[in-house]
Deep mutational scan, measured.
Amino acid sequence: QWKVGDKCSAIWSEDGCIYPATIASIDFKRETCVVVYTGYGNREEQNLSDLLSPICE
């Protein structure tokens, strides 16, 4: 189960590419979260089910 502060990978809606991110907040009722893309600072809402394991850098 994901928690705030977890590192993950998420698909950015603008280009469909996968980027490393950190979970900033979680809404368990809606099963969504807000991620912050590492190195970019962009925030975006994602479905918890769409999150991927962190990418090894």
Rank of each mutant, 00 (worst) to 15 (best):
I26Y: 00
V35H: 01
S25W: 10
T38I: 12
W12P: 00
T38V: 10
Y19H: 07
G16F: 07
K3T: 09
L51R: 03
Y40D: 01
N47V: 04
I11R: 15
A10C: 05
G5Y: 07
V36L: 07
P20M: 12
S25H: 05
E44C: 06
Y37M: 01
Y37T: 00
D15W: 10
E44D: 06
L48H: 03
C17T: 03
Q1S: 12
W12V: 05
K29Y: 12
G39A: 10
L48I: 04
A24F: 14
E45D: 03
A24L: 15
V34P: 02
C56F: 14
N42W: 15
T22N: 02
S9M: 15
T22P: 01
I18P: 06
V35D: 01
T38A: 11
Q46A: 04
G41H: 07
E14M: 14
D50I: 09
W2M: 13
Y37L: 01
R43N: 02
R43Y: 13
D6A: 00
V36S: 01
Y19S: 03
A10Y: 06
C33N: 00
G16Y: 07
V34K: 01
G41W: 09
S25L: 10
P54F: 09
G41R: 08
R30V: 08
V34Y: 05
E44H: 05
D50Q: 05
A10Q: 04
V35A: 02
I18Y: 14
A10W: 09
S49C: 08
Y40I: 12
G5K: 00
P54A: 08
Y19E: 02
A21E: 02
C17Y: 06
Q46F: 08
V36G: 00
T32H: 02
C17S: 03
G5P: 06
Y40E: 01
I11H: 01
E45Y: 05
A21H: 06
D15M: 09
P54T: 08
W2G: 14
T22A: 03
P54G: 08
I23Y: 04
G16T: 03
F28P: 11
T38M: 11
I23G: 03
A24D: 09
K29Q: 13
P54S: 06
S49H: 08
D50H: 05
A10L: 07
W2C: 14
K7S: 11
Y40H: 15
P54L: 09
Y19Q: 02
S49A: 13
L51H: 02
D15F: 10
I55P: 09
A21S: 02
I55Y: 12
A21C: 15
F28Y: 15
K7N: 10
C56S: 14
C56R: 11
Q1R: 14
R43Q: 14
D50C: 08
S9G: 10
D6H: 00
S53R: 13
L51P: 04
T32L: 06
D15Q: 07
N47G: 03
D6E: 02
Y40W: 13
L48R: 02
A24W: 13
I11D: 02
Y19R: 01
K29L: 12
G5R: 00
S13F: 05
